[in-house]
Computed example of a mutant assay.
Amino acid sequence: MSRSVLVTGASRGIGLAIAQAYHAAGDRVAITYRSTPAPDGFLSVPCDITQPDHIETAFAAVEEQHGPVEVLVSNAGITRDKLLLTMSEDDFTSVLDTNLTGAYRVAKLAARRMIRRREGRILFISSASALYGQAGQSNYTASKAGLIGFARSLARELAPRGITVNTLSPGLTDTAMLNTLGAEKVEGLAAQVPLGRLARPEEIARAALFLTSPDAGYITGQVLAVDGGVSMGH
């Protein structure tokens, strides 16, 4: 059955791969973006998730064309990597405002509609670094770890209404953004992964598809790490 799916921050990388997986499954897929729309085949809606009025407008546009959001994938996020002593307060708060507070904003709007229907799927895209930490990313890691606690609390709140809430934590993934580091650096990072390679975006997307599928109807409040074994034991 075709569902109304919204993936935030999905004009490229993991978000785009997730949107493409839903589209291939026959769902009606909308994506939000800040600068570059997604390729043809999607309803692309401009939205800065740090601005509540932008989110209201985006949801209204999605609902007008696709109906109420039945599956929300909260993927939008930014990085401002610096060591603590060189990290400004704006570096810290801006990352949390986008990655964590932004997720709160979109989840709150989606949940309102889902509660009325007594069904829905919410998935937050966290990071393997939220489970084991990463030097130079204390702001990013804090925001992604916060998503896990946020999701588990929501899972308890929304379960009586038939809504599941889970978190997906990808590891290093073969995207254009990672490849800007250079081949030698990427090879070194891949060597630290127990499986010895980077994730492919479509592998992350298939995990997202499963966690929001009817087959995962009895799974909520969980964290699925798709990271080649990097965070095992955490």
Rank of each mutant, 00 (worst) to 15 (best):
A17L: 01
C47S: 08
T32I: 10
L154I: 06
R116C: 02
L123G: 01
M114T: 14
R34H: 13
P52I: 03
T79H: 00
Q137F: 14
T167N: 02
G41I: 09
F59V: 11
T93V: 12
R200Y: 12
T50P: 02
D27I: 06
L43A: 04
F150D: 05
S35Q: 12
D48Q: 12
G67R: 05
M1C: 04
I204D: 15
T32E: 15
S126M: 07
G217T: 05
R200P: 11
L43V: 03
A111E: 09
A128M: 07
R28S: 09
D40R: 10
V165Y: 00
G228F: 15
G26W: 11
G233Y: 12
Q20T: 14
V73W: 15
V73D: 01
T167C: 05
S138A: 10
G171I: 07
A110F: 13
A24D: 14
G196W: 07
V5I: 12
A17P: 01
R113G: 10
R34C: 04
P68N: 04
L172N: 03
V29F: 12
V193Q: 02
A111D: 10
S213F: 07
L83A: 10
V71D: 03
T86L: 08
K144R: 12
E187Q: 13
A151V: 08
I49C: 03
G229K: 01
L147R: 01
T212M: 07
I78V: 15
L85W: 01
G171E: 06
L72G: 11
S231A: 14
E203F: 13
Y104Q: 02
A155I: 04
T101L: 13
I31N: 03
A128N: 06
M87C: 06
T32K: 00
I163E: 07
A205D: 02
V186E: 00
R12H: 13
L83S: 14
A107Q: 05
R117C: 02
G149Y: 13
R80D: 09
Y104K: 04
R34K: 15
D97Q: 15
D81F: 13
Q134N: 14
L198Q: 05
D227N: 10
L198D: 08
G196T: 09
L198C: 07
R197M: 13
T98W: 00
C47A: 07
T101E: 05
A190H: 13
P194V: 15
V7M: 06
D91C: 04
N75R: 05
V73L: 06
R121A: 13
A111T: 02
G133A: 08
L83E: 08
T141R: 14
M177Y: 01
F210D: 12
R112C: 07
A111P: 09
S213Q: 08
P194L: 15
Y140S: 08
A205F: 03
E64A: 11
T86V: 06
R116G: 04
D48C: 11
D48K: 10
R156S: 09
A190Y: 11
T32H: 05
G9F: 02
G217P: 01
T79Q: 12
H234V: 09
R34Q: 09
Q51K: 12
T8R: 14
D215N: 13
A30V: 02
G13H: 10
A159V: 15
R206Q: 06
V193T: 01
P68W: 04
D27A: 01
L181G: 13
D91K: 01
R156D: 14
E70P: 08
G229I: 04
A61K: 06
A103P: 00
A135T: 05
T101I: 08
A135N: 11
